[in-house]
């Protein structure tokens, strides 16, 4: 008997402003319907932008060691995500998002780690094949911060959760989620190179010997399909964003 596959729409989008990028992902989550397709989007940002976790305030950056040491962060355009976690500097990185409708049975509150892990392990295995010593962090700055009474660092890539992907001491992939009755939105950011706005965070290209012309978007699409495919059998259709117009109104 043939196993029925879930329909997934794959969009390799162009670079957009922070406001547009977040608006599109919010729309895709709001329009998620039972038995509707999973939508996967890969995109960049048209200018260096900070995206804040849903509960973060931009004022908190001023008191954060990263904000004090790198005041240029305070001057960047910023947008708030619907997903949790810390702020991300979107510059030399690729962002992914996917929306899974509630009907796919992955919305139990305890199921979030399953999705983080599926994607991060696929990226980890891909990086290992590229010769990088990638692993899941297995550390958690949240628990450390709670015990000490300190706040976690403002920037996501200075924090650690056990499923974050690291190469040596450097975090290169982090993800976050939002859940509603309609479905689940997961965001993630793959750090390729250090940003001129904040050089302390190294990316994959800074650590590994990978040709500068390496096609990371294609590579990340394959890893996402691989990771999600370990949870749900998926049948992908590649589209452009304009083809999703009906979901973005």
């Amino acid at each position: 008997m043939e196993i029925s596959k879930n329909k997934a729409l794959l969009v390799r989008d162009s670079a957009r402003t922070g406001i547009d990028n977040m608006r599109i992902d919010d729309c895709l989550l709001q329009r998620a319907v039972p038995e509707g397709p999973i939508v996967v989007r890969i995109y960049r940002w048209s200018e260096p932008t900070l995206s804040l976790g849903h509960f973060q305030q931009i004022e908190d950056l001023v008191d954060d060691p990263a904000g004090i040491s790198q005041p240029s962060l305070n001057r960047l355009p910023w947008v708030r995500r619907k997903t949790g976690g810390g702020a991300i500097l979107h510059d030399q990185e690729i962002t992914y998002s996917f929306v899974i409708p509630a009907s796919k049975g992955l919305l139990d509150k305890g199921a979030n780690e399953v999705l983080y892990r599926a994607v991060h392990e696929a990226v980890r295995d891909g990086l290992i094949r590229l010769g990088l010593e990638a692993s899941l962090s297995e550390n958690c700055t949240c628990s450390v911060a709670k015990k000490s009474g300190d706040e976690e660092p403002f920037l996501c890539f200075q924090r650690r959760t056990p499923v974050d992907l690291v190469v040596g001491a450097h975090k290169v992939l982090g993800s976050a989620q939002r859940r509603t009755r309609a479905g689940l939105l997961q965001h993630g950011s793959l750090l390729l190179r250090a940003s001129g706005e904040f050089g302390a965070l190294l990316g994959i290209q800074d650590i590994g010997k990978i040709p500068s012309e390496f096609l990371w978007e294609e590579w990340l699409v394959d890893r996402l399909c691989e990771g999600l495919g370990t949870i749900l059998p998926l049948n992908y259709e590649v589209l452009e964003l304009k083809d999703l117009g009906y979901l973005l109104k």
Binding site: G53, K109, N112, T161, G174, A176, Q177, R179
Partner: peptide, 13 residues
């Protein structure tokens, strides 16, 4: 309302 845990934001109804 909303809660955040393990970087996931969930609404309360």
């Amino acid at each position: 309302g909303e809660v955040e845990s393990v970087k996931a934001v969930s609404p309360m109804y």
